[in-house]
């Protein structure tokens, strides 16, 4: 759960505003008045990417108008607004039980228009219906994974954060992979090692013989997993790693128990990724996690995909 360090880095506001402006350009192209992005404590990567907001509990949605400042509406109490303003670039925060009503209030009464819904399929259906009721005459247009697509290829600054997340994940894995530890002690050591390095979240799965660590650092996710003890990487992972180049797709790589997740999908283990993701060719500069093996035994590493081949970002030393 998101209970680790949340900060807004000094450099972040300028880059985040650029991301908002880029999205606003896309909205203008598509002829929508605003985009709405839903998030909750389980999945909020798109909203964090645009604003650095951390939805540490409950749910909310970010409204990005084609022109002007974004607004975050949430079921969290208004008492958290000062903290949200201090840790994000959003200044217009609105709280209440009726999210659709808050959206209507924000849009004012400009007459019927078009509201873009990012990843409509995953929105709570009753919330969509209450939005439709609150905005009579408005078209609710599915924008698909518009924000996810923009996140796939990290900027140099983002790549730095992904590298740090991967470094923390690898170190925490090594701390937890000490032979002879009980499962709970193993998980405890990983938690401490990762959180002391400032992660916002860490997901740990451990057994007597296996350990998986997934870290979120400043909104950027990395994963590493493997068996304990000196075991070579399984052949399917090595084979997939050798094929991991710009231009290949998940379909090309996912055979013999290998699976691939973009860094943006690690938050929910790929549960929300679009179907077309399977055939989309990987671009140079994307960061992905490759896994091989059965659940509870798999080996996972996080890689930067370059023209010259993959660069492994997670290091486990001997073992995984």
């Amino acid at each position: 759960m998101k209970r680790g360090l949340v900060v807004l880095e000094e450099w972040a506001p300028a880059e985040l505003r650029t991301r908002i402006e880029t999205l606003q350009g896309r909205l203008a192209e598509q002829g929508v008045e605003a985009a709405a992005i839903y998030g909750d404590v389980h999945r909020s990567g798109d909203i964090t990417y645009l604003t650095n907001l951390c939805i540490y509990w409950n749910e909310g949605l970010l409204l990005v108008p084609a022109r002007g400042e974004p607004t975050f509406v949430t079921r969290l109490s208004a008492r958290v607004h000062p903290w949200m303003r201090a840790t994000s670039i959003v200044t217009d925060l609105r709280s209440g039980p009726d999210l659709a009503g808050l959206v209507r209030e924000r849009l004012g009464d400009p007459g019927p228009g078009s509201l873009g819904i990012v990843e409509r399929s995953w929105w709570p259906a009753p919330l969509l219906r209450s939005l439709a009721a609150a905005l009579p005459g408005w078209q609710l247009r599915d924008l698909g994974p518009l924000v996810r697509s923009a996140r796939l290829r990290p900027s140099p600054r983002e790549l730095g954060l992904l590298r740090e997340s991967a470094t923390i994940a690898g170190r925490a894995w090594r701390v937890g992979a000490v032979p002879g530890l009980g499962v709970t002690e193993r998980a405890a050591r990983v938690e401490r090692a990762a959180r002391e390095r400032g992660v916002e979240d860490v997901l740990v799965r451990a057994s007597d013989s296996w350990l998986e660590v997934t870290t979120e650092y400043r909104g950027y996710w990395a994963a590493v997993a493997g068996g304990l003890g000196a075991r070579p990487d399984p052949a399917p992972l090595a084979a997939a790693e050798a094929r991991l180049r710009p231009g290949v797709s998940r379909r090309d790589l996912e055979r013999d128990g290998v699976s691939l997740l973009h860094h943006v999908d690690l938050e929910t283990a790929g549960d929300h990724r679009p179907d077309e993701d399977r055939d989309a060719p990987l671009e140079e500069g994307v960061v992905v996690a490759l896994s091989a093996g059965r659940p509870g035994e798999r080996v996972t590493h996080t890689y930067l995909v370059t023209a010259g081949g993959p660069e492994r970002l997670t290091e486990t030393g001997e073992g995984a």
Binding site: M1, R3, T184, A188, R189, E191, R195, G198
Partner: peptide
């Protein structure tokens, strides 16, 4: 955040699945 890290260590050591804090 280091205080939280210390608490998480103890809770997980004692078998907690998760924690809201």
């Amino acid at each position: 955040y280091a205080v939280v890290a210390a608490v998480e260590h103890e809770l997980k050591r004692l078998g907690a699945e998760d924690n809201f804090m």
